[in-house]
Amino acid sequence: MWATERVWDEAVGLPRIEEGEEVAPKDARELSKLFFDRLRTLEEGSPEYHYTRNTLIEMNLALVHYVAGRYRNRGNGQLEDIVQVGTLGLIKAIDRFDRARGHEFVSYAVPCILGEIKRHFRDTSWAVHVPRRLQELRVALTKSQERLSSTLGREPTVRELAADLAMSEEQILEGIMAANGYAARPLDAPNVLNEGDEPSKNGRSLADILGHSDPAIEAFENAHALAPLIAALDERDRRIIELRFGQEMTQDEIGSVLGISQMHVSRLLSRTLVRLREGLLARE
């Protein structure tokens, strides 16, 4: 008898297994042979086919948990997500497995599950999306750096990495730059110069040392754009602009300096500002 209670299903010609996940791994290995042989004789889409295929999946989920367990401390995702991805690999293995070739299902399924999980990490663990070729280049660079560091007793240069991988120095530099997108750090993280260093004792975070948008930049850009327009004004209009915005004088004070009324200053200033504004808009 198998580890689980069996009820022979005459329609399918297989043991009726109510809880496939509760089948012991040793029993699952033998039962899977029966189910694979029967699966190939059933019409795809039929109720019997679905029962046989689904039971195969349930009985072999232990393989998924075994492979996924290697990545429980990876940190790139929850174990449940890894199991989900691994289950997809198991399903693909079941759909492609041919027992007539003489291979054990376990030896065929484990690489399929492992490959699906590795593909998941390769596609989702990068903080910034980069092309697949650069993701693969990062892996090659890491191995080359470790190999050359062991041989040379120091960190290899770009030229040495290029020679080791039979690539150009430009390609190596591109791969090194792309590797910066593998992991992201929050702005409130403690400031460290290199990975593995102790956090800064002054309590400064990354946000404290990163640049900020300078509000004066826009004023500078506007002043730079206005310079040729102001230079084109007549002397009196330039003088009014300088007194009003350079020395921050009132219109009454400007009128006293120029010997004209405050109302006259207001009209001249309004006319000049309109002219400058139109000049700026025409440059955009």
Rank of each mutant, 00 (worst) to 15 (best):
R132F: 08
H129G: 13
R96W: 12
V128K: 07
T124W: 03
R132L: 09
G102D: 04
W126R: 13
F121H: 03
R96K: 15
S107Q: 10
Q135N: 04
D123S: 07
I117K: 03
G102W: 06
Q135P: 04
V106A: 07
H129D: 15
G102E: 05
R99T: 00
P111Q: 02
E104W: 04
Q135F: 05
S107I: 10
R99A: 00
R133C: 05
D123I: 02
A127Q: 09
W126Y: 15
R122G: 12
L134S: 08
R122D: 13
V110N: 06
I113V: 06
E104S: 07
D98Y: 00
P111M: 01
F105C: 10
R119G: 09
R133M: 07
G115Q: 01
R96D: 15
H129L: 13
Y108N: 10
V130A: 12
V128P: 02
I117H: 05
T124H: 10
Y108I: 12
D98T: 00
H120C: 11
R122M: 14
E116H: 04
A100R: 14
H103D: 14
W126T: 13
S107F: 09
W126V: 13
R99G: 00
R122I: 11
F105T: 05
L134R: 11
R96I: 12
R96G: 13
I113N: 05
R133Q: 08
Q135E: 05
L134I: 09
H103Q: 15
R133G: 04
D123P: 05
S107P: 04
T124G: 02
F121V: 03
F105H: 09
D123H: 06
Y108D: 11
G102R: 08
A100F: 10
S107D: 09
S125Y: 15
R119A: 06
V106F: 04
S125E: 15
V130P: 10
A100N: 14
L134N: 07
L114K: 02
A127G: 13
R122A: 14
Y108S: 11
V128E: 09
K118P: 01
D123L: 04
P131A: 09
I117R: 06
C112T: 04
P131L: 04
H120E: 10
A109N: 01
F97L: 04
W126S: 14
V106E: 08
R119Y: 02
